[in-house]
């Protein structure tokens, strides 16, 4: 079996998702947590592309476009919240202090 098969791509997606989840769980900096979420979204997109290649369907790339727009909106809103936290007097970006956000 060829090494570039969709099954191996799914393995890579699994590994990337686990690494991103490790980052979300272990890091305390909100910026690094957002970066780890980006890695997880990339892994999900790779899973869709691999499934599309496995079953010869273009629907995988359609779902990839949906994930892409989701990631763009998520990055914009998340980074705006991070800037808001930073300017509101919590420059450490500790995720434990996020409960005092208001407005």
């Amino acid at each position: 079996m060829s090494a570039a098969s969709p099954t191996h791509a799914l393995l890579l997606a699994t590994l990337l998702f686990a690494v991103g989840m490790l980052g979300v769980l272990a890091r305390r900096n909100l910026l690094l947590m957002l970066m780890s979420i980006e890695i997880m979204l990339n892994a999900a997109a790779l899973a869709f592309i691999a499934a599309g290649a496995r079953w010869h369907a273009a629907q995988g790339q359609v779902m990839f476009l949906m994930i892409l727009s989701l990631a763009a909106a998520e990055a914009a809103v998340g980074l705006a919240i991070i800037l808001r936290l930073h300017s509101a007097g919590r420059p450490t970006l500790d995720a434990d202090t996020g409960n005092r956000l208001k407005g």
Partner: peptide
């Protein structure tokens, strides 16, 4: 936790039947 998730997903992935290598990589 991440290692458990990785192991569980890898075990699940083993149930996917492999593709025929001839028609695998037709570009979309």
């Amino acid at each position: 936790l991440s290692g458990l998730l990785l192991i569980a997903l890898c075990i699940t992935l083993r149930t996917i039947p492999p593709t025929a290598a001839s028609d695998a990589m037709v570009p979309i």
